[in-house]
Design a binder for these strands. Structure first.
Length: 271
DNA sequence: ATAATCACCTGCTCGC
DNA sequence: TGCGAGCAGGTGATTA
């Protein structure tokens, strides 16, 4: 479900309520996510204040006093505040209860998500340490992408969806950004000029910012932590529009699979 | 080192 | 209506 904009929308919805509040209890109903939920979470987190909630790539980092909760929503995860007494359904695997009767509930049908605890600097955690540039960071630019892509024959779309190159660009927004940048998704990453990488970097930023502004993309079930869907779906130019007309040249869009992911592009506008 | 494929899950849609 | 096939927003691990 969530790509970077959806994770950021989730962060923005949760942070104002959770930050500064104290954890009263952690309830784990099913710890079988991508990795087992850290058992220390239920032991160590209660009693601690959540100082802040950050996002790195598609990870949410809940900073507490003696450590940090590292959370990932995988493909189908979502996070909502519910009434603490509300019965959990079979996909609601964990709750973090806070002061004032707030209950932050993790829902994840496919269980590709993660809920981990670390006492160390989370940015040195194995899952985060080798992540690429944060695309919405002011320092993000095409020059670094160009350097990194040097010599690579991999399709540029696979290159930009690899979080070690750019952090957090998933399938939807990779399709969209490549369309905006007029770059063919199957072009070899190492055969794109520095100037075009600068255009691509700007396109990635523009698409992600736009999506965040519109509350993310709701395909079937994404909602922010307030339960409201995102509206970026109506702004999608290529994703999910295979065979429909290109919004620029009106020719039919084409679909291919790149790195096991559906890819849609305009063969006329993207080169 | 790089690139491609597999694996982990459930739920939904489609065609027969 | 039922049923199998294929697909879905991610990404680490495994294989060449």
């Amino acid at each position: 479900m969530p790509e970077l904009p959806e994770v950021e929308i989730t962060r923005q919805g949760i942070a104002p309520i959770a930050e500064g509040r104290r954890v009263t209890e952690v309830r784990i109903r099913n710890s079988r996510l991508r990795w087992p939920i850290s058992p220390e979470l239920a032991q160590e987190l209660p009693g601690q204040i959540i100082h802040s909630i950050e996002r790195r790539a598609k990870y949410l980092l809940l900073r507490a006093e003696t450590g940090t909760v590292i959370m990932h929503l995988g493909m189908s995860g979502s996070l909502r505040f519910v009434a603490p007494a509300r019965p959990a359904n079979r996909h609601e695997h964990a709750d973090i209860l806070l002061d004032d009767d707030y209950c932050l509930r993790l829902h994840d049908p496919r269980r590709f998500g993660a809920l981990l605890w670390t006492r160390d600097d989370p940015h040195t955690h194995p899952l985060l340490a080798s992540l690429g540039q944060e695309p919405l960071d002011v320092a993000f630019n095409g020059a670094a992408l160009y350097e990194r892509a040097c010599g690579r024959r991999q399709a540029v779309k696979a290159f930009i969806t690899d979080s070690h190159n750019v952090a957090g660009v998933g399938n939807i927004y990779a399709n969209e950004a490549l369309f905006v940048a007029k770059i063919h998704p199957q072009r070899a990453a190492g055969r794109i000029s520095r100037a075009r990488y600068c255009v691509l970097a700007n396109a990635i930023q523009q698409v992600l910012r736009d999506a965040i502004r519109q509350g993310g993309t709701t395909l079937r079930d994404f909602t922010g932590s307030d339960g409201r869907p995102g509206h970026f779906r109506q702004s999608l130019r290529v994703y999910g529009r295979c065979t429909a007309a290109c919004v620029i040249c009106q020719r039919p869009l084409r679909g291919v699979r790149i790195a096991q992911r559906s890819t849609v592009y305009c063969a006329h506008c993207q080169r």
